[in-house]
Design a protein around this nucleic acid. Structure first.
Lengths: 224, 224
DNA sequence: ACCGTACGCTTACGGTGTAAGGTGGGCCGC
DNA sequence: GCGGCCCACCTTACACCGTAAGCGTACGGT
Protein backbone atom coordinates (compact mmCIF):
# COMPACT_ATOMS: atom_id res chain seq x y z
CA UNK A 1 0.00 0.00 0.00
CA UNK A 2 2.50 2.63 -0.94
CA UNK A 3 1.90 6.03 -2.42
CA UNK A 4 -1.71 6.72 -3.37
CA UNK A 5 -4.98 4.78 -3.22
CA UNK A 6 -5.60 4.73 -6.95
CA UNK A 7 -7.87 7.76 -7.26
CA UNK A 8 -5.95 10.60 -5.63
CA UNK A 9 -2.99 11.15 -7.98
CA UNK A 10 -0.63 13.10 -5.75
CA UNK A 11 1.65 15.91 -6.96
CA UNK A 12 4.14 13.16 -7.82
CA UNK A 13 7.24 15.35 -8.01
CA UNK A 14 9.74 12.67 -7.22
CA UNK A 15 12.34 14.53 -5.12
CA UNK A 16 15.81 15.28 -6.36
CA UNK A 17 19.28 15.96 -5.06
CA UNK A 18 18.80 19.68 -4.97
CA UNK A 19 15.69 19.55 -2.82
CA UNK A 20 17.44 17.15 -0.47
CA UNK A 21 20.43 19.48 -0.17
CA UNK A 22 18.28 22.54 0.40
CA UNK A 23 16.32 20.76 3.11
CA UNK A 24 19.54 19.63 4.73
CA UNK A 25 20.89 23.17 4.73
CA UNK A 26 17.67 24.52 6.26
CA UNK A 27 17.68 21.85 8.90
CA UNK A 28 21.31 22.47 9.80
CA UNK A 29 20.72 26.22 9.92
CA UNK A 30 17.80 25.76 12.26
CA UNK A 31 18.96 23.01 14.61
CA UNK A 32 22.70 22.71 14.15
CA UNK A 33 24.66 20.22 12.14
CA UNK A 34 24.90 17.63 14.88
CA UNK A 35 21.16 17.09 14.85
CA UNK A 36 21.02 16.58 11.11
CA UNK A 37 20.41 12.88 10.75
CA UNK A 38 19.26 10.92 7.76
CA UNK A 39 16.02 10.05 9.49
CA UNK A 40 15.16 13.62 10.38
CA UNK A 41 16.13 14.80 6.92
CA UNK A 42 13.91 12.16 5.40
CA UNK A 43 11.08 13.27 7.61
CA UNK A 44 11.62 16.87 6.54
CA UNK A 45 11.22 16.01 2.88
CA UNK A 46 8.45 13.49 3.49
CA UNK A 47 10.37 10.30 2.84
CA UNK A 48 11.98 7.46 4.77
CA UNK A 49 15.65 7.77 5.58
CA UNK A 50 16.79 5.08 3.18
CA UNK A 51 15.07 6.74 0.23
CA UNK A 52 17.50 9.61 0.49
CA UNK A 53 20.18 7.29 -0.76
CA UNK A 54 18.61 7.48 -4.19
CA UNK A 55 19.87 11.06 -4.36
CA UNK A 56 23.02 11.14 -2.29
CA UNK A 57 25.64 8.45 -2.17
CA UNK A 58 26.08 8.60 1.61
CA UNK A 59 26.25 11.10 4.38
CA UNK A 60 29.63 12.60 3.48
CA UNK A 61 28.36 13.10 -0.06
CA UNK A 62 25.42 14.93 1.47
CA UNK A 63 27.76 17.13 3.48
CA UNK A 64 29.92 17.80 0.43
CA UNK A 65 26.80 18.89 -1.41
CA UNK A 66 25.79 21.18 1.43
CA UNK A 67 29.19 22.89 1.34
CA UNK A 68 28.77 23.41 -2.37
CA UNK A 69 25.43 25.09 -1.69
CA UNK A 70 27.20 27.49 0.63
CA UNK A 71 29.83 28.32 -1.99
CA UNK A 72 27.11 28.86 -4.56
CA UNK A 73 25.76 31.63 -2.34
CA UNK A 74 29.02 33.57 -2.44
CA UNK A 75 28.97 36.15 -5.20
CA UNK A 76 31.85 35.68 -7.61
CA UNK A 77 34.43 38.47 -7.87
CA UNK A 78 34.12 40.53 -11.01
CA UNK A 79 37.03 41.82 -13.06
CA UNK A 80 35.44 45.22 -13.53
CA UNK A 81 36.53 46.85 -10.32
CA UNK A 82 40.15 46.59 -9.28
CA UNK A 83 41.41 43.37 -7.70
CA UNK A 84 41.45 44.96 -4.29
CA UNK A 85 37.81 45.90 -4.08
CA UNK A 86 36.86 42.65 -5.80
CA UNK A 87 38.78 40.65 -3.19
CA UNK A 88 37.35 42.76 -0.43
CA UNK A 89 33.80 42.20 -1.57
CA UNK A 90 34.40 38.52 -1.99
CA UNK A 91 35.81 38.25 1.52
CA UNK A 92 32.83 40.03 3.01
CA UNK A 93 30.42 37.88 1.04
CA UNK A 94 32.21 34.71 2.10
CA UNK A 95 32.09 35.69 5.73
CA UNK A 96 28.41 36.49 5.43
CA UNK A 97 27.72 33.09 3.93
CA UNK A 98 29.73 31.30 6.61
CA UNK A 99 27.91 33.31 9.23
CA UNK A 100 24.50 32.47 7.78
CA UNK A 101 25.46 28.79 7.89
CA UNK A 102 27.49 28.43 11.03
CA UNK A 103 27.82 24.68 10.58
CA UNK A 104 29.67 25.09 7.29
CA UNK A 105 33.07 26.03 8.65
CA UNK A 106 33.18 22.89 10.75
CA UNK A 107 32.64 20.80 7.65
CA UNK A 108 35.62 22.13 5.76
CA UNK A 109 37.50 19.03 6.79
CA UNK A 110 35.50 17.01 4.30
CA UNK A 111 36.61 19.59 1.75
CA UNK A 112 38.19 16.84 -0.33
CA UNK A 113 36.10 16.39 -3.48
CA UNK A 114 34.85 19.93 -4.07
CA UNK A 115 31.61 20.52 -5.94
CA UNK A 116 31.10 22.58 -9.10
CA UNK A 117 30.19 25.80 -7.30
CA UNK A 118 33.30 25.46 -5.16
CA UNK A 119 35.51 24.96 -8.20
CA UNK A 120 33.89 27.85 -10.02
CA UNK A 121 34.53 30.03 -7.00
CA UNK A 122 38.20 29.15 -6.83
CA UNK A 123 38.53 29.63 -10.56
CA UNK A 124 37.01 33.10 -10.42
CA UNK A 125 39.22 34.23 -7.57
CA UNK A 126 42.41 33.05 -9.21
CA UNK A 127 41.25 34.51 -12.51
CA UNK A 128 40.64 37.89 -10.92
CA UNK A 129 44.10 38.00 -9.42
CA UNK A 130 45.83 36.77 -12.56
CA UNK A 131 43.99 39.25 -14.77
CA UNK A 132 45.10 42.01 -12.44
CA UNK A 133 48.69 41.02 -13.11
CA UNK A 134 49.52 38.80 -10.14
CA UNK A 135 52.15 36.16 -10.72
CA UNK A 136 51.18 32.61 -9.91
CA UNK A 137 53.29 32.78 -6.81
CA UNK A 138 51.83 36.01 -5.50
CA UNK A 139 48.33 34.82 -6.36
CA UNK A 140 48.98 31.71 -4.28
CA UNK A 141 50.24 33.82 -1.40
CA UNK A 142 47.25 36.11 -1.63
CA UNK A 143 44.69 33.37 -1.85
CA UNK A 144 46.16 31.39 1.01
CA UNK A 145 46.39 34.46 3.23
CA UNK A 146 42.89 35.70 2.51
CA UNK A 147 41.16 32.35 2.81
CA UNK A 148 43.03 31.46 5.95
CA UNK A 149 41.91 34.70 7.48
CA UNK A 150 38.30 34.35 6.36
CA UNK A 151 37.96 30.77 7.51
CA UNK A 152 39.73 31.39 10.78
CA UNK A 153 37.58 34.37 11.54
CA UNK A 154 34.45 32.40 10.81
CA UNK A 155 35.75 29.67 13.08
CA UNK A 156 36.27 32.07 15.96
CA UNK A 157 32.95 33.76 15.36
CA UNK A 158 31.16 30.44 15.44
CA UNK A 159 32.78 29.71 18.75
CA UNK A 160 30.95 32.62 20.31
CA UNK A 161 28.10 31.25 22.37
CA UNK A 162 25.35 33.44 20.97
CA UNK A 163 24.51 35.58 18.05
CA UNK A 164 24.02 39.12 19.27
CA UNK A 165 26.82 41.05 20.98
CA UNK A 166 24.53 41.66 23.94
CA UNK A 167 23.92 38.00 24.61
CA UNK A 168 27.60 37.26 24.21
CA UNK A 169 28.51 40.05 26.57
CA UNK A 170 26.11 38.74 29.20
CA UNK A 171 27.54 35.30 28.90
CA UNK A 172 31.13 36.51 28.91
CA UNK A 173 30.37 38.23 32.18
CA UNK A 174 29.11 34.99 33.64
CA UNK A 175 32.14 33.10 32.36
CA UNK A 176 34.68 35.57 33.62
CA UNK A 177 33.03 35.50 37.03
CA UNK A 178 33.82 31.79 37.25
CA UNK A 179 37.57 31.87 36.94
CA UNK A 180 40.07 33.27 39.40
CA UNK A 181 40.71 36.82 38.22
CA UNK A 182 44.14 37.08 39.80
CA UNK A 183 45.44 34.07 37.91
CA UNK A 184 44.72 35.66 34.56
CA UNK A 185 45.07 39.37 35.22
CA UNK A 186 45.55 40.53 31.65
CA UNK A 187 42.70 38.44 30.38
CA UNK A 188 40.44 39.73 33.12
CA UNK A 189 41.39 43.36 32.50
CA UNK A 190 40.92 42.92 28.81
CA UNK A 191 37.51 41.39 29.29
CA UNK A 192 36.25 43.96 31.74
CA UNK A 193 37.70 47.07 30.20
CA UNK A 194 37.24 46.28 26.57
CA UNK A 195 35.06 43.29 25.70
CA UNK A 196 32.34 44.08 28.21
CA UNK A 197 32.37 47.77 27.36
CA UNK A 198 29.20 48.88 25.54
CA UNK A 199 29.56 48.92 21.80
CA UNK A 200 32.08 46.13 21.55
CA UNK A 201 31.25 43.67 18.80
CA UNK A 202 33.68 40.97 17.78
CA UNK A 203 32.23 40.95 14.30
CA UNK A 204 33.62 44.41 13.73
CA UNK A 205 37.14 43.04 13.98
CA UNK A 206 36.79 41.37 10.62
CA UNK A 207 37.39 44.44 8.49
CA UNK A 208 40.49 45.50 10.39
CA UNK A 209 42.38 42.30 9.70
CA UNK A 210 41.03 42.10 6.19
CA UNK A 211 42.36 45.52 5.30
CA UNK A 212 45.65 44.70 6.96
CA UNK A 213 46.06 41.79 4.57
CA UNK A 214 44.79 43.62 1.51
CA UNK A 215 47.11 46.56 2.11
CA UNK A 216 50.01 44.21 2.61
CA UNK A 217 49.19 42.45 -0.62
CA UNK A 218 49.02 45.76 -2.44
CA UNK A 219 52.45 46.64 -1.22
CA UNK A 220 53.82 43.26 -2.20
CA UNK A 221 52.18 43.57 -5.61
CA UNK A 222 53.67 47.00 -6.16
CA UNK A 223 57.10 45.82 -5.09
CA UNK A 224 57.08 42.70 -7.27
CA UNK B 1 36.70 -11.55 40.27
CA UNK B 2 38.04 -8.10 39.56
CA UNK B 3 41.55 -6.83 39.86
CA UNK B 4 44.02 -9.24 41.40
CA UNK B 5 43.88 -12.79 42.78
CA UNK B 6 44.84 -11.92 46.34
CA UNK B 7 48.59 -12.46 46.13
CA UNK B 8 49.74 -10.29 43.21
CA UNK B 9 49.11 -6.75 44.41
CA UNK B 10 49.09 -4.96 41.08
CA UNK B 11 50.55 -1.46 40.52
CA UNK B 12 47.12 -0.22 41.64
CA UNK B 13 47.47 3.25 40.13
CA UNK B 14 43.81 3.98 39.72
CA UNK B 15 43.78 6.07 36.54
CA UNK B 16 43.11 9.78 36.48
CA UNK B 17 41.83 12.48 34.19
CA UNK B 18 45.23 13.33 32.85
CA UNK B 19 46.03 9.79 31.77
CA UNK B 20 42.65 9.56 30.10
CA UNK B 21 43.26 12.81 28.21
CA UNK B 22 46.73 11.80 27.13
CA UNK B 23 45.48 8.49 25.84
CA UNK B 24 42.67 10.22 23.98
CA UNK B 25 45.13 12.60 22.34
CA UNK B 26 47.39 9.74 21.29
CA UNK B 27 44.48 7.80 19.89
CA UNK B 28 43.18 10.79 17.95
CA UNK B 29 46.66 11.52 16.61
CA UNK B 30 47.04 7.98 15.42
CA UNK B 31 43.61 7.12 14.05
CA UNK B 32 41.75 10.38 13.62
CA UNK B 33 39.19 11.97 15.85
CA UNK B 34 36.22 10.23 14.28
CA UNK B 35 37.45 6.86 15.45
CA UNK B 36 37.95 8.00 19.01
CA UNK B 37 35.11 6.31 20.87
CA UNK B 38 34.61 5.80 24.54
CA UNK B 39 34.94 2.04 24.14
CA UNK B 40 38.20 2.23 22.24
CA UNK B 41 39.54 4.80 24.66
CA UNK B 42 38.61 2.54 27.53
CA UNK B 43 40.39 -0.33 25.88
CA UNK B 44 43.48 1.81 25.38
CA UNK B 45 43.74 2.58 29.08
CA UNK B 46 42.69 -0.91 30.15
CA UNK B 47 39.24 -0.13 31.42
CA UNK B 48 35.62 -0.50 30.32
CA UNK B 49 34.01 2.43 28.56
CA UNK B 50 31.71 3.38 31.41
CA UNK B 51 34.57 3.61 33.86
CA UNK B 52 35.90 6.61 31.98
CA UNK B 53 32.95 8.58 33.28
CA UNK B 54 34.60 8.59 36.68
CA UNK B 55 37.18 10.97 35.22
CA UNK B 56 35.37 12.93 32.54
CA UNK B 57 31.83 14.21 32.75
CA UNK B 58 30.92 13.20 29.20
CA UNK B 59 32.38 13.16 25.74
CA UNK B 60 32.38 16.92 25.15
CA UNK B 61 34.17 17.36 28.45
CA UNK B 62 36.72 14.88 27.15
CA UNK B 63 37.11 16.88 23.94
CA UNK B 64 37.42 20.13 25.90
CA UNK B 65 40.18 18.54 27.91
CA UNK B 66 41.96 17.38 24.78
CA UNK B 67 41.94 20.91 23.38
CA UNK B 68 43.45 22.14 26.61
CA UNK B 69 46.22 19.59 26.21
CA UNK B 70 46.97 21.06 22.79
CA UNK B 71 47.12 24.59 24.18
CA UNK B 72 49.41 23.42 26.93
CA UNK B 73 51.89 22.36 24.25
CA UNK B 74 52.13 25.87 22.81
CA UNK B 75 55.02 27.76 24.33
CA UNK B 76 53.90 30.99 25.96
CA UNK B 77 55.20 34.26 24.51
CA UNK B 78 57.86 35.90 26.61
CA UNK B 79 58.15 39.61 27.24
CA UNK B 80 61.90 39.59 26.77
CA UNK B 81 62.06 39.87 23.00
CA UNK B 82 59.94 42.51 21.34
CA UNK B 83 56.24 41.90 20.81
CA UNK B 84 56.76 41.19 17.14
CA UNK B 85 59.17 38.31 17.50
CA UNK B 86 57.21 37.01 20.48
CA UNK B 87 54.00 36.98 18.43
CA UNK B 88 55.80 35.43 15.51
CA UNK B 89 57.20 32.62 17.63
CA UNK B 90 53.85 32.01 19.23
CA UNK B 91 52.17 31.81 15.84
CA UNK B 92 54.69 29.31 14.56
CA UNK B 93 54.39 27.24 17.72
CA UNK B 94 50.61 27.28 17.53
CA UNK B 95 50.64 26.13 13.95
CA UNK B 96 53.06 23.37 14.82
CA UNK B 97 50.80 22.17 17.61
CA UNK B 98 47.74 22.24 15.39
CA UNK B 99 49.65 20.41 12.75
CA UNK B 100 50.81 17.73 15.20
CA UNK B 101 47.19 17.24 16.25
CA UNK B 102 45.22 17.68 13.06
CA UNK B 103 41.97 16.82 14.79
CA UNK B 104 42.24 19.80 17.12
CA UNK B 105 41.22 22.55 14.72
CA UNK B 106 37.96 20.77 13.96
CA UNK B 107 37.15 20.74 17.66
CA UNK B 108 37.39 24.47 18.12
CA UNK B 109 33.63 24.59 17.88
CA UNK B 110 33.37 23.15 21.36
CA UNK B 111 35.68 25.95 22.42
CA UNK B 112 33.10 27.16 24.90
CA UNK B 113 34.38 26.41 28.41
CA UNK B 114 38.15 26.78 27.93
CA UNK B 115 40.53 24.90 30.20
CA UNK B 116 43.27 26.37 32.36
CA UNK B 117 46.04 26.04 29.77
CA UNK B 118 43.86 27.79 27.23
CA UNK B 119 43.16 30.66 29.61
CA UNK B 120 46.79 30.93 30.55
CA UNK B 121 47.69 31.09 26.88
CA UNK B 122 45.25 33.90 26.15
CA UNK B 123 46.38 35.76 29.22
CA UNK B 124 50.02 35.57 28.17
CA UNK B 125 49.32 36.80 24.65
CA UNK B 126 47.26 39.75 25.79
CA UNK B 127 49.83 40.51 28.47
CA UNK B 128 52.63 40.55 25.93
CA UNK B 129 50.80 43.00 23.70
CA UNK B 130 49.72 45.24 26.56
CA UNK B 131 53.20 45.35 28.06
CA UNK B 132 54.53 46.37 24.66
CA UNK B 133 52.21 49.36 24.78
CA UNK B 134 49.23 48.19 22.73
CA UNK B 135 45.91 49.77 23.62
CA UNK B 136 43.11 47.37 24.47
CA UNK B 137 41.57 48.09 21.11
CA UNK B 138 44.68 47.45 19.08
CA UNK B 139 45.44 44.36 21.12
CA UNK B 140 41.99 43.06 20.28
CA UNK B 141 42.55 43.79 16.62
CA UNK B 142 45.91 42.11 16.68
CA UNK B 143 44.78 39.04 18.54
CA UNK B 144 41.73 38.53 16.37
CA UNK B 145 43.71 38.96 13.18
CA UNK B 146 46.54 36.65 14.19
CA UNK B 147 44.38 33.90 15.61
CA UNK B 148 42.01 34.00 12.68
CA UNK B 149 44.94 33.57 10.36
CA UNK B 150 46.54 30.78 12.36
CA UNK B 151 43.32 28.81 12.78
CA UNK B 152 42.28 29.31 9.19
CA UNK B 153 45.64 28.22 7.90
CA UNK B 154 45.52 25.12 10.04
CA UNK B 155 42.04 24.42 8.74
CA UNK B 156 43.20 24.62 5.15
CA UNK B 157 46.28 22.58 5.84
CA UNK B 158 44.24 19.85 7.45
CA UNK B 159 42.07 19.76 4.35
CA UNK B 160 45.03 18.62 2.33
CA UNK B 161 44.65 14.93 1.66
CA UNK B 162 48.11 13.85 2.74
CA UNK B 163 51.05 14.95 4.74
CA UNK B 164 54.00 15.30 2.42
CA UNK B 165 53.96 17.72 -0.52
CA UNK B 166 54.80 14.85 -2.85
CA UNK B 167 51.77 12.83 -1.90
CA UNK B 168 49.55 15.88 -2.15
CA UNK B 169 50.95 16.72 -5.54
CA UNK B 170 50.28 13.23 -6.82
CA UNK B 171 46.75 13.38 -5.55
CA UNK B 172 46.16 16.88 -6.91
CA UNK B 173 47.19 15.57 -10.30
CA UNK B 174 44.59 12.82 -10.07
CA UNK B 175 41.94 15.29 -8.94
CA UNK B 176 42.63 17.85 -11.62
CA UNK B 177 42.45 15.13 -14.25
CA UNK B 178 38.89 14.44 -13.20
CA UNK B 179 37.32 17.81 -13.86
CA UNK B 180 36.78 19.53 -17.20
CA UNK B 181 39.82 21.75 -17.65
CA UNK B 182 38.11 24.18 -19.98
CA UNK B 183 35.41 25.00 -17.46
CA UNK B 184 37.91 26.14 -14.89
CA UNK B 185 40.78 27.50 -16.97
CA UNK B 186 42.43 29.65 -14.33
CA UNK B 187 42.23 26.96 -11.72
CA UNK B 188 43.70 24.43 -14.13
CA UNK B 189 46.52 26.72 -15.19
CA UNK B 190 47.26 27.56 -11.58
CA UNK B 191 47.35 23.91 -10.64
CA UNK B 192 49.57 22.77 -13.50
CA UNK B 193 51.94 25.68 -13.64
CA UNK B 194 52.35 26.39 -9.97
CA UNK B 195 50.98 23.80 -7.55
CA UNK B 196 52.28 20.80 -9.45
CA UNK B 197 55.65 22.42 -10.07
CA UNK B 198 58.46 20.76 -8.12
CA UNK B 199 59.25 22.51 -4.89
CA UNK B 200 55.78 23.79 -4.20
CA UNK B 201 54.72 23.26 -0.61
CA UNK B 202 51.56 24.80 0.75
CA UNK B 203 53.03 24.85 4.23
CA UNK B 204 55.52 27.47 3.10
CA UNK B 205 52.69 29.92 2.53
CA UNK B 206 52.25 30.31 6.27
CA UNK B 207 55.10 32.69 6.88
CA UNK B 208 54.16 35.00 4.02
CA UNK B 209 50.71 35.79 5.38
CA UNK B 210 51.99 35.88 8.93
CA UNK B 211 54.56 38.53 8.12
CA UNK B 212 51.95 40.45 6.16
CA UNK B 213 49.84 40.70 9.28
CA UNK B 214 52.74 41.40 11.64
CA UNK B 215 54.08 44.18 9.43
CA UNK B 216 50.61 45.66 9.16
CA UNK B 217 50.24 45.57 12.92
CA UNK B 218 53.61 47.24 13.35
CA UNK B 219 52.51 50.05 11.08
CA UNK B 220 49.20 50.41 12.91
CA UNK B 221 51.05 50.40 16.23
CA UNK B 222 53.44 53.10 15.08
CA UNK B 223 50.61 55.22 13.74
CA UNK B 224 48.48 54.95 16.88
C1' DA C 1 1.92 -4.42 -24.38
C1' DC C 2 5.93 -4.88 -22.29
C1' DC C 3 10.02 -4.20 -19.74
C1' DG C 4 13.91 -1.78 -17.45
C1' DT C 5 14.89 1.60 -14.45
C1' DA C 6 14.11 4.93 -10.90
C1' DC C 7 12.29 5.69 -6.61
C1' DG C 8 10.11 4.63 -2.67
C1' DC C 9 9.51 1.20 1.39
C1' DT C 10 10.79 -2.27 5.30
C1' DT C 11 13.87 -4.82 7.91
C1' DA C 12 18.11 -5.54 10.13
C1' DC C 13 22.97 -4.96 11.81
C1' DG C 14 26.83 -3.19 14.10
C1' DG C 15 28.30 0.84 16.43
C1' DT C 16 27.58 5.10 19.27
C1' DG C 17 27.07 7.85 23.91
C1' DT C 18 25.50 7.16 28.28
C1' DA C 19 21.70 6.18 32.23
C1' DA C 20 21.17 2.88 35.97
C1' DG C 21 22.64 -0.09 39.18
C1' DG C 22 25.76 -3.78 41.11
C1' DT C 23 30.37 -5.17 43.44
C1' DG C 24 34.44 -5.13 45.82
C1' DG C 25 38.60 -3.17 47.96
C1' DG C 26 40.85 0.64 50.67
C1' DC C 27 40.41 3.91 54.26
C1' DC C 28 38.16 6.09 58.12
C1' DG C 29 36.29 6.41 63.01
C1' DC C 30 35.23 3.63 66.75
C1' DG D 1 39.77 -5.22 65.15
C1' DC D 2 35.96 -3.95 62.74
C1' DG D 3 31.74 -1.80 60.70
C1' DG D 4 30.62 1.33 57.29
C1' DC D 5 31.33 4.41 53.58
C1' DC D 6 33.24 5.85 49.28
C1' DC D 7 34.80 5.35 44.96
C1' DA D 8 36.80 3.07 41.03
C1' DC D 9 35.45 -0.26 38.40
C1' DC D 10 32.06 -3.43 36.25
C1' DT D 11 27.63 -5.19 33.59
C1' DT D 12 23.43 -4.42 31.47
C1' DA D 13 20.35 -1.85 28.72
C1' DC D 14 18.43 1.84 25.76
C1' DA D 15 17.71 5.03 22.14
C1' DC D 16 19.69 6.56 18.15
C1' DC D 17 23.00 6.55 14.39
C1' DG D 18 24.52 5.38 9.21
C1' DT D 19 23.57 2.19 5.90
C1' DA D 20 23.50 -2.84 3.53
C1' DA D 21 20.07 -5.77 1.46
C1' DG D 22 16.06 -6.72 -0.66
C1' DC D 23 11.18 -5.82 -2.30
C1' DG D 24 7.28 -3.51 -4.67
C1' DT D 25 5.40 -0.24 -7.78
C1' DA D 26 4.90 3.56 -11.17
C1' DC D 27 6.65 5.58 -15.25
C1' DG D 28 9.03 6.39 -19.82
C1' DG D 29 10.70 4.29 -23.99
C1' DT D 30 10.10 0.94 -27.54
Amino acid sequence: MPAQPASGAAPRTPLNRERVLQAAVSLADANGIESLTMRKLGEAVGVEAMSLYNHVANKVDLLDGMIDVVFSEIELPSDDDGWKTAMRRRAVAARAALSRHRWAIGLMESRTSPGPATLRHHDAVIGCLRNAGFSFELAAHAYAALDSYIYGFALQERGLPFDSPEETSALAQAMVAQFPVDEYPHLAAFTFEHVLQPGYDFGKEFEFGLDLILDGLERAFGAG
